[in-house]
Nucleic acid binder design. Sequence first.
DNA 1: GGTTATAAGTTGTATGTGCAACTTCCTGTC
DNA 2: GACAGGAAGTTGCACATACAACTTATAACC
Lengths: 124, 124
Amino acid sequence: MSARRLARILTRMYAEEMEGQMEPAQFGLLQMMEHMQHCTQAGLANALYMDKTTVSRDVAVMKKRGWVEGGRGGLRVTPIGRRLLADAMPHWQRAQKRLRKALGDDGWQALFAAMRAVDYEASA
Amino acid sequence: MSARRLARILTRMYAEEMEGQMEPAQFGLLQMMEHMQHCTQAGLANALYMDKTTVSRDVAVMKKRGWVEGGRGGLRVTPIGRRLLADAMPHWQRAQKRLRKALGDDGWQALFAAMRAVDYEASA
DNA sequence: GGTTATAAGTTGTATGTGCAACTTCCTGTC
DNA sequence: GACAGGAAGTTGCACATACAACTTATAACC
């Protein structure tokens, strides 16, 4: 199952570049929350193709840490969370750069094209 | 982390097509074992970019079921395992077809190109 | 306000996975 | 044969994830 292998490889790489700053999964959730603004957990789960229980639990942890607040359609990133996100950004960008370098421009485009296509299939 | 989302989407899709015949992970392991012939668990783990403990546990389950036997460099698929693999093949092929249809030829090539590139990065 | 339906969210439980530490086995050297 | 080193493989523990069942909150309607 190559897609899972792909995910494992990429996750490890991102985790390395993040240097314990933040788990890749948390980063993804925070980023999506910031993007969606005042969202529901259900919406998050759909957007990230995650199970709502996983989202519920991850969000609970982040709430406890003060990174996010609200709920029932009013979930949003706190200033603390926002600062963490900003701090983690350079690391994430370094990971992106590393990946892009490894793949080359064509490979990079191919990866994102493939992901978009799979997204489309998943929402059909 | 889009790669994880990709993996989740694909895993679900393959699981659907497999119809409980066999877990996608097991299929992947069995297939790789059949391909490698008389392999080590460590070799499997490397090939699939899996953690050796996970491989150890998965292989233990499959041994118990009589799907595989041997070890210490002599791991191989039993006739039972081979038959299961053959039975699962049409399902897996259907999943591949479905994915290919969804992605289109370009997207299909892009996905595999991306995976090969990431593989290359992971082994560097 | 009361009722109903449904979406949002949580809890219980089971399974899968990975890190660290450990054990076993094999190979090479003397 | 004895010993050492390293590879192969296992175990303990913690965390991540998902299915099913359940609870809570919200919106619509009367």
